[in-house]
Nucleic acid binder design. Structure first.
Lengths: 340, 340
DNA sequence: AATAGTATTGCAAATGTTTTCATTTACGGC
DNA sequence: GCCGTAAATGAAAACATTTGCAATACTATT
């Protein structure tokens, strides 16, 4: 095929109008006569013309993209969030630029920069805490930004998320209320992850009110993976003295714990209670159903999309942060402590 | 702050050189004197200049973006794929434009269009089969494209994936070889999903060789979700006559089946054998470990990234499709059929 | 100190659009 | 058929870059 580049000028020629008119027929169709519009449409179709957003963006017109940077895609947590965010933001006419930084906030900065080069209309980051540099960049470029997943009354940018401290507090309070005293904690690495750190703090605070705490030997840090959690709990349960409750930083770790206990022949919740945080898809249908704290990822994603869209379209209007309240979901993995 | 827009001209002024030199110092640094480059760098830093890729793209320079369209993000399958693809493609200097179509190939077309408007340098789609329109679009725009997940010797574009027919065949063969005859099939909806359809066909073919087939009443179609699968299997097992093996179209459905069986007090694999396909993270550590077929998502993602990158950088060079061979992973959910 | 050759730099055109402003066209009333 | 007004269109400037070509500034020779 004679692949003459088809630009707006080629279309204009084919439709026997000026480029201006073609442009107008896209951007302000009401300004061009219906018959002309039809001619143009025909030409567009015939030539297979596709608009060039790069050329538009140059005019200060919005690029129609929103940057989303997550720690990683393949944790159930974020997958759900990304999905709902992307659905909602597409609905609003934007496309997502996605990248992951693997919990390395320095990389997050680099990626942010790259996204700004692409002139994204807005940015969404996971978590409240980020490098000062990153915030500075976003500030200086004046890019509408939303912080996801974690809520804070006062954060550098508008936040949409849950109260992770409270989420942790809820499980701590629940387990404490069930009279457990020999409690293990299973958390992912806390560095670069303000969500996990806050949950952790919430758990400790709640437990402290019962005069209980997680002893150091049962304070386990494990990579965010089902397998790692399973191994850790298997080791944990093979020791001389074992806990009667295991509080997990999130549902995936809890699943791992549950599998480990099942394998070890320990019955849940009679022998050991287990809690998660997140209420990921699957936790409800796990057997036994996981007692956890619901943090509605889909809701956060959808709300975040709206929030950022309105920040983009009405930059001057202050938009409030959204707190999605976490709630305890009682299922079958917890029981009152009883000495055997 | 006096937010005078900082463009390349502002930088040039600040560094007391011409815009051309600034541009060159970015794109062909070897052509500009080291001392000049330093002056420019300083100016860039001081002004907080960020390059505008839109303005570059207009010159036919690559946009540095690759479009990735998946059916949905929040299935374990794709999350893993997206993660590995994105890691690898970032490494190669590209950024991902991500969107999901929810198994609606018509939407896929629309999204493809949108991505072309953004002048992505390449595209990656899931599956071999797509609307003729979509292919036409990609062809006419001459965009390097890779088809993921499913392999075919002969496909419209280069493919990187596994042989899903064979994956299905493997489980069918395995179950058939274990002498099962009362077999149920649990598959996701097949429309718009060539992967599932092929697995399905593979299973049937293998089973047929043993003279067995999945009877219609046990041929169950269920949404891709753990909960739906669990419910379906719960119903299945509450009937008069029950199967001795359940072949699932993927691991998530198998997990659901396993939970359902556990709840029903049916022991696996003694009473019922279960198989998955995919070997998602978690299947190994499930208790009991799920017998499944490994389709290495990470490998596919990484290879796909390389493939598309080389298609982009060397457009004339033909690149071959990659077949990632699926292999049966024997764990603890299958046993020889024995009449009780 | 002049010359040739090379390394740097600047000028200006080009990229694919949008938009302002001016011009042309169409329409309704006389 | 003419006029005034409103609707539709076109011309040209603007957007932020890159790049081919020409001009200038060095360097090493002689």
């Amino acid at each position: 095929m004679k692949d003459k580049k088809v630009d707006i000028i080629a279309v204009a020629k084919a439709a026997r109008v000026s480029p201006s008119t073609v442009s107008r027929s896209f951007n302000h169709p009401e300004l061009v006569k219906a018959s002309t519009r039809k001619k143009i449409d025909t030409a567009v179709r015939r030539l297979g013309y596709i608009r060039n957003r790069a050329a538009q963006t140059i005019h200060g017109i919005r690029s129609g993209t929103v940057g989303l940077i997550v720690p990683t895609v393949d944790h159930a947590i974020f997958a759900e969030l990304i999905q709902s965010f992307s659905e909602a933001i597409e609905e609003l006419g934007f496309t997502i630029l996605l990248a992951s930084h693997g919990y390395d906030l320095q990389r997050e900065y680099a990626i942010t920069r790259k996204m700004l080069e692409h002139r994204v209309d807005g940015m969404a980051l996971i978590g409240i805490e980020h490098e000062a540099e990153t915030f500075g960049l976003l500030d200086s470029q004046n890019v509408p930004t939303v912080l996801l997943w974690n809520y804070a009354k006062t954060s550098h940018f508008t936040s949409v998320g849950s109260d992770n401290f409270r989420a942790g507090w809820l499980v701590g309070h629940h387990i404490g209320g069930l009279k457990h005293t020999r409690i293990a904690g299973l958390f992912p690495p806390l560095s670069g992850n303000d969500r996990a750190a806050q949950r952790r703090a919430g758990v400790e605070t709640a437990l402290a009110a019962f005069g209980v705490q997680i002893p150091e030997i049962w304070d386990i840090e494990t990579p965010y993976s089902l397998g790692a959690a399973k191994d850790a709990v298997t080791r944990l349960m093979s020791r001389e003295v074992t806990p009667t409750a295991i509080i997990c930083g999130n549902d995936v770790l809890a699943w791992g714990a549950l599998h480990a206990l099942s394998k070890a022949g320990v019955t849940v919740p009679e022998d050991v209670s287990v809690t998660g945080i997140g209420d990921f898809t699957g936790s409800r249908d796990f057997e036994p159903g996981l007692t956890t704290v619901r943090i509605p990822a889909r809701q956060i994603g959808a709300k975040a999309a709206q929030t950022i869209a309105s920040k983009i379209t009405a930059p001057d209007q202050e938009v409030a942060s959204t707190l999605v309240i976490p709630e305890l979901v009682l299922r079958q993995t917890c029981a009152v402590f009883s000495e055997k």
